[in-house]
Nucleic acid binder design. Structure first.
Lengths: 197, 197
DNA sequence: AATAAAAGTGACCATTTGGTCACTTTTATT
DNA sequence: AATAAAAGTGACCAAATGGTCACTTTTATT
């Protein structure tokens, strides 16, 4: 069921849409990548636009469970060292997982061509991540680990610089090691500024 | 000379490429917007790709003079209040100038489809702005206005959050007022954290 | 005024692309 | 085993698109 043709089409569509854009993707290439004929696609989806919309449905569902539910929050750090390692671990994953990379590319490149993508982009790059870390910081502040600052503000100034370097990683994956050095440098600076001594 | 057909074509191409992408733009629409026939375009450019490349040439030239030369730096702030108003003034401009908005959109949406755009994107969104403010902060530190921190780091944590809100402005221009409230809030927080008292 | 170069036009071409359809093959159901 | 539904195929169509060309109009040069 997981690896049904219907899902495989969406998997491959994500790759092509992310790499060449909606307009730059044609159904012949998509079918060829799947070892199918073009007309077979129409047994599962009614049109190119239908594939696009179903892909966005899947992405929205993913974000709804990632950012929507309280259940799968990352573990609450018990120290600033743990905040550091948690952050680096999350980034290491987010920057290397092929599907997440492609999703970021698609959100960036199609955000002005599709209203749903626009909303997902703000959710992914700004609100979602910010709210997630705001909760973490809220806990760390009440545990006396961080200075008593507004956790939303703290999260904003923590996540947006990191996100901008994640985007740089997407552009220059060959420089990932060096960019991670910059991220570590930043995170340490942040901790040294806002850790409660 | 400024308003030659050759330049008008590039002006209109920027609009269409930024709004619909390279692939999503067709030469018939481009010609129609200019009140020209499609074949007239070929009197000035050899192909669609040629138009694209010449547009990038123009953008590169713009960035070379904006970020390259030391000459046109913004005035050095004599106080943190002046840093605040300088920042808000620059943002007010960058977020409302149609050509700059379109340029940002083009850099974002085409960064993974073109090597030159990729490099310009990093220059525009990261290095250029960062270096510009690093110089400003360097001056303010030696003037005793800001704490003695690494100006590059200071600029990084100043410009990347602001840039992320500029992107939000591009996505939601109808919320510009509210977003500017968030920017002001952030800038004040930054100043209160790093101003030398 | 004569002339040549530059700018512009409309018809036309080849290719690409989303989509359809009659038909075959595979899979599941009884 | 018979049968019907699902999955897949290849040929075909119409529209869109980048590009060319012979020809006309405008502009500049002498």
């Amino acid at each position: 069921m997981e690896n049904s043709t219907k899902n495989r089409i969406l998997d491959e569509a994500l790759i092509l849409f992310a790499e060449h854009g909606y307009k730059g993707t044609n159904l012949r290439d998509l079918a060829a990548q799947l070892g199918l004929s073009k007309s077979a696609l129409y047994k599962h989806y009614t049109s190119k636009e239908d594939i696009w919309n179903c892909l966005l449905d899947r992405m929205e569902a993913y974000y709804a469970q990632r950012f929507g539910s309280e259940s799968n929050l990352p573990p609450q750090p018990k120290s600033c060292d743990e905040l550091f390692s948690l952050t680096m671990q999350m980034l290491r994953f987010t920057v290397n997982d092929p599907k997440i990379i492609l999703t970021r590319k698609l959100l960036l490149t199609e955000q002005f061509h599709d209203e749903r993508v626009k909303k997902l982009a703000t959710k992914h790059f700004l609100e979602g991540t910010q709210r997630l870390f705001a909760k973490i910081f809220e806990g760390m502040i009440s545990d006396g680990l961080l200075k008593k600052e507004n956790p939303e503000m703290l999260s904003f100034i923590y996540t947006t610089p990191v996100t901008s370097l994640v985007h740089l990683c997407d552009r220059e994956p060959e420089n990932q090691a060096q960019i991670f050095g910059r991220i570590e440098h930043f995170v340490k600076h942040f901790i040294s500024t806002y850790a409660e001594k």
